[in-house]
Amino acid sequence: MAFPIIPYIQEVTRLEWLRKFFFVKTAPLLTPPYFRGFPELTGKTCTHALFCMMACPAPGAIDVIRTPGGWQPRIHMGHCIRCGLCVEACPNGVLTSGRILESMFYDNTRLSFSFRIDVNTDLCMGCGNCAVACPVNKLIDAQMSHGGRASTDELLLKVSEGKCHVLHVEKCTGCKTCENHCPNEAIRVSRLLEAVHGQEEEV
């Protein structure tokens, strides 16, 4: 028997070993700084572009409020899923989370937005609430009458022949005001997020 029983017993009866065996715990695990946490403010100026709210997949997770120091995005814990899309979407780099901003800088990527407006013609009753509420329409034709009828065709939304028609979908900013004002849930705004590589001019 070459089994070294004596050194083994000597080892386990050492006070130091016994203390380690019964009392030592593994070190508390620290969250590394490169983990994506809840987005934090970097201190840059928010311009109220609201791209963060448009990109956010979780309902009620982010909003932009007016503070005495200017606009400021606010993250709601319990709603935020830490996906980091608001960090990527922000054109000004107001938010930061993990190393999203660094990797976006090195990889030269950004998010591009486009929007699609679907009008369910079966549900639409041509009330024109959407066209009147639309802030883009308001900039183009401030004189738009109630009912959404107008003389110009440069508008985003316009009511003609009793139905709402989408004329220039490329002017949409994705604010979903029309969707919120529709009494029939007939209009739906969907956003198409696309990760693109390279500068804005090249695309």
Binding site: P57, A58, P59, G60, H76, G78, H79, C80, I81
Partner: peptide, 12 residues
């Protein structure tokens, strides 16, 4: 998790 607090993505 978010779900018991707010419903998160399912609360639509």
């Amino acid at each position: 998790g978010n779900c018991p607090i707010s419903g998160c993505l399912f609360n639509r």
